[in-house]
Write a protein that binds this DNA or RNA. Structure first.
Length: 313
DNA sequence: CGTGTTTGACCAGCGC
DNA sequence: GCGCTGGTCAAACACG
């Protein structure tokens, strides 16, 4: 399937009111939207409302920029995907007998910068999975995540918010780069394992294969963070502390897609619907994250204060 | 000293 | 049965 010809509208509407665009919204409508962010602006002066509109325009422009970046990412994904399909086609010629019942030969997964839950449903949307019985897919819960890393970064660290304990490393036949084996640090109570290996095609891409499903909350949630603290007194290896949406480093961004499970798709699985779904999930994940909305509110109010102060001085 | 990482040894599955 | 390969174990080591 060719995504380049059918790129979805990937603009993230971060307003809590999805029915209106923010660029044509009158200033009086702002209060209703900011209520959701815990800010009441009903009493702000007329000029402050104007400043808010200006601010919103700026955010819109930023949104547009992000949209463009996402579009570029989608295009890169398409190119990479085509390469992988090529590679797969060549591989299947060589292994024509073994007809890839192995989950690890699965290259049709959607590209995820970082997937919190390795067992995320989004990863089971490949053609191979749908050829297999559904129960088997659920039982296996294997997903693959591609993460582009800095060229200087030679490690095999995939920041996904969970804590992992490395238990082995092996050089495999088909890839000169060593494969690292990780267990969830909640093991043995949590059965999730992760394999991390650099891509043969592009060594700046790290492929993380997740097996199993976490049976504990994400470490970024308070209860899980407390559990993690007791499980490991040392903070070493903790990828992300605090909000997954905001505390991730500049190169990665974690979206908790488990909070809003996608509807099971019937029929066409691998298409614009998936991308649309992913974008919707990203937007939902961001807007539902109280830390994100709080930080956004703080940032906007902070800028307002800054502006007011600079106008007065 | 406790915890995580490294790395060689070991084991199981598979094909021949 | 043998060899190959991927996955796991566990002792040694490093680090804070």
């Amino acid at each position: 399937m060719d995504y380049s010809s059918s790129l979805v509208d990937v603009s993230l509407d971060l307003n809590l009111n999805p029915l209106r665009r923010n660029d044509d919204r009158p200033a009086s409508a702002l209060s209703a939207n900011f209520m959701g962010l815990g800010i009441s602006v009903s009493s702000v002066k007329e000029e402050e409302a104007g400043a808010l509109v200006e601010e919103l325009n700026r955010v819109s422009a930023e949104n547009k920029k992000l949209t463009e970046m996402l579009t570029v990412m989608c295009e890169n994904y398409t190119a990479l995907r085509n390469q992988l399909m090529d590679h797969m086609a060549r591989n299947s010629k060589r292994k024509s007998d073994s007809t890839t019942t192995n989950n690890n030969d699965n290259y049709n997964l959607p590209l995820a910068t970082n997937n919190n839950n390795g067992a995320s449903e989004s990863s089971s949307t490949d053609e191979e999975s749908f050829k297999r019985p559904r129960e088997e897919v659920i039982k296996a819960k294997i997903s693959r995540v591609y993460v582009r890393t800095e060229p200087s970064d030679t490690g095999l660290i995939v920041k996904d918010g969970y804590q992992w304990r490395k238990y082995g490393q092996k050089v495999t036949r088909d890839n000169p780069c060593p494969r690292a084996y990780f267990k969830c640090s909640f093991a043995p109570s949590c059965p999730v394992k992760k394999k991390v290996q650099r891509s043969v095609e592009d060594q700046s891409v790290v492929v993380a294969t997740y097996e199993g499903e976490h049976n504990h909350p994400h470490p970024s949630t308070p209860e899980a963070a407390a559990a993690a603290a007791t499980a490991s007194s040392s903070g070493r290896g903790l990828a992300i502390a605090g909000s997954p949406s905001l505390a991730a480093g500049p190169a990665t961004m974690t979206l908790d897609l488990t909070k809003s499970k996608p509807k099971p798709l019937a029929g066409g699985i691998d298409g614009p619907e998936i991308q649309q779904l992913l974008v919707e999930q990203m937007a939902t994940s961001l807007t539902k994250d109280p830390n994100f909305t709080a930080a956004l509110a703080a940032a906007i109010s902070g800028r307002m204060l800054q502006r007011n102060r600079s106008e007065r001085w």
